[in-house]
């Protein structure tokens, strides 16, 4: 078994565990970025081409046009149930990245939008495409991570996770965040995308000497200088880069512990 097959098998095992434990009450969060698109591909692997649960896209209304186009195209091609969720109330009030603290905008338009859709559908578990190497806080995540009714992450009291035995005991109003690609690095994702030929939004490819390394909302993402316009070139670029992946993400930079605050509040 080669290295990427090992990474893949681990993810497929986690996805199947989640499906077995939360059948009918499970959904996946898809940001349309490279990581959650890879996760979507792994879900298809786990169920032999099918995606047997809804796929949620949290729409802040500030995403790139390319992302909306890609989202709708893939949903059609791969044939899955797409739930588009927004915090309509806050959007109507004019919430946006320039209204105040970015932390508040992320909390309202992402975290609270997710909270609303989880409540509306009664989901008990959500698959997410986060990775340990993204951030020091994410490095401490479990594969199965319980969240309380307020979506709080009790990170000082995480349950043990030993030998692929994932805790799934559900207290009232709790839900689980499930992280099947936690062990992939950014470079692993790109090498796996190349190996499996997974479709990826064009924003990651260099256009006029710059590309996005991490994508989200238009106002909070900056491109990085790059000539890499193919997956192979992106891989070659990352092999020598010492910049961090989220360098272009504005919300991380307000305060040293923004990421921890966002995650403890239920951010993905």
């Amino acid at each position: 078994m080669d290295y990427y097959q090992a990474l893949e098998s681990k993810s497929v095992y986690v996805i199947r565990e989640a499906y077995q434990k939360f059948n009918g009450r499970i959904a996946m969060l898809w940001s349309v970025g490279k990581d959650s698109t890879t996760l979507l591909w792994l879900v298809r692997k786990a169920f032999f081409g099918e995606i047997p649960f809804p796929v949620i896209h949290i729409d802040t209304s500030y995403k790139f046009p390319e992302m909306y186009e890609f989202r709708d195209r893939l949903a059609k091609e791969w044939g899955f149930e797409l739930i588009v969720a927004s915090n309509d109330h806050q959007l109507a009030q004019g919430m946006g990245p320039s209204t105040g603290m970015k932390l508040d905008c992320c909390t309202e338009l992402k975290t609270n939008a997710l909270k609303q859709v989880v409540e509306r559908h009664g989901f008990q578990s959500i698959l997410l495409g986060i990775r340990r190497d993204e951030h020091g806080i994410r490095a401490k995540e479990r594969y199965f991570s319980p969240r309380d009714a307020e979506f709080q992450w009790d990170y000082e009291n995480q349950p043990a996770e030993v030998w692929d035995q994932y805790n799934s005991f559900l207290r009232e109003d709790e839900h689980y965040r499930i992280h099947p690609i936690l062990h992939f690095t950014e470079l692993d994702i790109w090498r796996y995308v190349q190996r499996e030929n997974i479709p990826i939004v064009d924003l990651y490819r260099s256009n006029n000497g710059a590309r996005y390394r991490s994508i989200g909302c238009v106002p909070c993402c900056s491109p990085v200088p790059s000539q890499a316009s193919t997956v192979a070139e992106i891989i070659a670029e990352l092999e020598t880069s010492t910049q961090s992946e989220r360098a272009g993400r504005a919300q991380d930079k307000e305060n040293l512990y923004t990421m921890q605050k966002l995650r403890s509040l239920g951010y993905m």
């Binding site: 340990r132 190497d133 020091g136 490095a139 401490k140 990170y155 000082e156 995480q158 690095t185 512990y257």
Partner: peptide
């Protein structure tokens, strides 16, 4: 502090949870 990313960990100078880094 590269690994002890939690605010509490840095203030108290201890490691609370396991972490992984490449």
């Amino acid at each position: 502090f590269v690994l002890d990313a939690f605010e509490e960990e840095r203030r108290r100078g201890i490691t609370i949870d396991t972490s992984q880094i490449f």
